[in-house]
Structure formats: structure tokens, C-alpha cells
């Protein structure tokens, strides 16, 4: 169904420092099945938009910037939702590993099938976005259930490979103390989780909604204040060994 030797992408950031460890080449893929109310990149939703880039070209770019990666850096595939193009990614990650470059995957956890499992095996860091621990709220925020997200997390835990959780903090939507605790309880025994990253909600993507003629429903929601961020951080600290505000 999708190409295996090329990706549809939205853009490339050669100097990524917020999506996985070290300096990273971050490729933002096109296509997503979630409809997050706060999505900063609604222009990535449509799989048929964006541009096409070959796997080999991405490998070439990664090799060209390998000297910048140091001990930690590498390549991160973000989106959109990368797993929509899992076959191409599997081949990309294998090629990166052949070049001695580590691969991270930033996913919303929508899909878990054998192909995604194979991809996760080749993934050095899974950055898993947990949008909400409560399914109803998750539905409200993203228009889909969090069932698969939790399954992906559980599967990753089984494999024992590294995982970072990412949590978008939206005042009034994902900052309820009870749910923050519930999320902590759910994951506190996970050994694969190295850290959880709080991503304070921002409105920097609003103009894209307007450009696409879509209504931005969170126009009234302000970014979380320091107090809200600190509160969340302190709660997460009770459950996770490292909590980072991104």
C-alpha cells in the first residue's frame, strides 16, 4: 500500500535537539489518523500532501551529519504519525543501523501490528505520546481511543527496549491531578521508561489551522503557567525517575 523505498514527508530539521537524545536529524513525516485539538502541525494530516524523499537520501543526509551526533545523537522520525509508513521506516532504520546510527521513533501509538512490532524491534528509542490516561478525555482530545497507545507501551515494555513518554500538558484538558496520578500509577513499574517529557501546550500552530480553513477549538486555552507545569512535574516525579519539561 505504501512505498518501501521512499517516504512522504512534511519537512526536515537537521538540528533537532528536542526529539530524543543528543543532536538529531529529525524527519517529520506526512499523514496522521489522530485529530488532536491542539495539533501544531495539522498540515501533516493528509498523507498525500508534502513531498517525497527516498530512503537513501535520508541515509545520505544522516551519514553526512554523523560527526555531529557525538555519542548520543542520531535520527528521529516524527510526524504526523510515522507508523503509517512503517515498511519504508523499517528499511530506513536497518540502513541507519548498518551505518552505526541510532534511530528514534516518535509515535502516537495508534497502530500495533506485526509490521509495527518489527519496526519497534529496529527502534532504539521509542518516544511514545500518551495524550491522556483516561479514554474519554483521550477521545475528546484526539478523536480516538487510547487503547492502542497503552498496548504499544505494554508491548515495548515486554521487549525491554528504551522508551520515553511524552505528555502534552493542556490546561483544562490534561492537567487534572487525579489523571496525572493515574498515569503515574499505570506506568510506575515499567522498566523501559527512561523519562517522561512534559510538553507545555502552545498556540504556535494556530495559523496553520487558519490556512487550512479549519476551526481551532482551543483558541481560548492559554499555555500552562509555571505553577501548572511545576505541579505536573512534581506529580510525575513521584512515579518516574526523570521528568523533563520540553
Amino acid at each position: 500500500m505504501y512505498a518501501t523505498d521512499s517516504l512522504r514527508i512534511h519537512s526536515i530539521e537537521s538540528f533537532g535537539t528536542h526529539d530524543g537524545p543528543g543532536i538529531r536529524l529529525v524527519v517529520f513525516t506526512q499523514g496522521c489518523h489522530f485529530r488532536c485539538l491542539y495539533c501544531a502541525n495539522p498540515d501533516t494530516w493528509d498523507l498525500h500532501q508534502g513531498s517525497e524523499i527516498s530512503i537513501d537520501e535520508i541515509v545520505r543526509m544522516a551519514v553526512a551529519q554523523k560527526s555531529f551526533f557525538g555519542k548520543k545523537g542520531g535520527v528521529t522520525i516524527s510526524g504526523g504519525e510515522p507508523t503509517l509508513q512503517r515498511l519504508a521506516l523499517l528499511s530506513l532504520f536497518k540502513k541507519l543501523h548498518a551505518e552505526g546510527i541510532n534511530a528514534a521513533l516518535d509515535s502516537n501509538g495508534k497502530i500495533l501490528n506485526d509490521e509495527v512490532k518489527a519496526l519497534l524491534k529496529e527502534t532504539d528509542y521509542l518516544l511514545l505520546d500518551v495524550k491522556h490516561i483516561n479514554d474519554e478525555w483521550h477521545h475528546l482530545l484526539t478523536s480516538v481511543s487510547n487503547q492502542s497507545v497503552l498496548e504499544v507501551a505494554a508491548y515495548r515494555e515486554q521487549t525491554g527496549k528504551a522508551m520515553w513518554l511524552r505528555y502534552v500538558l493542556v490546561p483544562g484538558y490534561s492537567d487534572q491531578e487525579e489523571y496525572l496520578h493515574q498515569l503515574g500509577e499505570h506506568f510506575k513499574h515499567y522498566k523501559s521508561i527512561e523519562k517522561i517529557e512534559i510538553q507545555p501546550y502552545h498556540q504556535l500552530g494556530v495559523h496553520k489551522w487558519e490556512a487550512l480553513g479549519k476551526t481551532y477549538e482551543l483558541a481560548h486555552v492559554q499555555p500552562p503557567n509555571q505553577e501548572c507545569i511545576d505541579k505536573t512535574k512534581n506529580i510525575f516525579k513521584m512515579y518516574f525517575k526523570e521528568v523533563v519539561v520540553n
Binding site: S11, I12, S14, F15, I23, M61, Q65, F68
Partner: peptide, 10 residues
């Protein structure tokens, strides 16, 4: 230089 700082440096 639209691909970010490292592509630019390269």
C-alpha cells in the same frame, strides 16, 4: 537554509 542548522553548517 530551510533544513536547519546542521545542513547549513555542512
Amino acid at each position: 537554509d530551510v533544513n536547519g542548522a546542521i545542513a547549513s553548517l555542512n
